[in-house]
Amino acid sequence: MDRHTPQQRSKNMSAVKSTGTKAEVCLGKALWQLGLRYRKNNKTVFGKPDFTFKKYKIAVFVDSEFFHGKDWDTKKKPATNAAFWLKKISRNIERDKEVNAYLQSNGWTVLRFWSKEVNKNLTGCVGLIAEAIDKAAGKI
């Protein structure tokens, strides 16, 4: 049973962002401060990554734990509207795999981070991205 009225639930869900989340903003600011220039949500790259470094063929995704199914096999499933959420999150996981496979088969390096991982270890995430750029640029 949902604790909220349908109007309240609709208002809550409409406030969920697909782009510009706190983790994405923090990561973007940290990359920019290092002088790493990127494109946000580039529609010309398959899967519309959160950050793209097209010159180096690097795509970076920052995924939310709930909507992209972190620990989906072991985690407790949603009780409210379960059929919808099972279908939605399973499809998101499947789509993430398809995007990874497509980009990698076309020579892209794909980096995926969980939003909590970015929040807890921003310097580590930035370091991995910088390392991937250095490797692609032939510096490593």
Score class of each variant (00 low, 15 high):
E94Q: 09
G107H: 04
W108Y: 10
T21G: 11
V62C: 02
V110R: 08
T74I: 10
S90F: 09
A136I: 02
I140L: 15
L103M: 03
D134W: 09
A82H: 15
K22A: 15
T52K: 07
L36T: 04
F66G: 07
L122P: 03
A136K: 11
S18Y: 03
T21W: 12
Q7M: 10
S64P: 03
R3F: 11
A79E: 14
N119C: 10
V25R: 06
R95S: 07
V16T: 14
K139S: 02
W32D: 05
E65L: 10
F113N: 03
D71K: 13
F53T: 04
A101N: 08
Q7K: 14
L103R: 00
K139I: 08
E131H: 09
S64A: 15
N42E: 13
K54Y: 01
V118N: 02
Y56L: 02
L36H: 05
W32I: 00
T5M: 11
V118R: 01
T123V: 00
A132R: 07
N92E: 13
W85I: 12
A132Y: 03
S10G: 13
K11Q: 11
G20S: 10
T44E: 11
M1E: 12
T109F: 03
S10L: 12
E131F: 09
A83N: 06
D63C: 09
V16I: 15
A59P: 01
T52L: 09
A132C: 09
K77I: 08
E117N: 06
F51G: 00
S90C: 10
K97T: 11
A136T: 05
E117T: 07
W32C: 07
G28A: 13
G47C: 00
N12F: 11
H4N: 09
F84S: 13
K139P: 00
E117G: 09
M13K: 14
G28Q: 01
L111E: 05
D96W: 07
G107R: 01
P49M: 01
K43Q: 14
G124W: 07
K55G: 02
T74Y: 02
W72I: 12
S105R: 14
R91T: 15
R95K: 15
S14D: 08
D71P: 05
G35H: 12
S90E: 15
Y102A: 04
K43W: 06
T74M: 09
Q104I: 10
A83F: 02
G127N: 12
K55R: 15
V25L: 13
F113I: 10
W108R: 06
K76H: 06
E94T: 06
R3G: 07
L103Y: 01
M1L: 11
Q7E: 15
T52V: 14
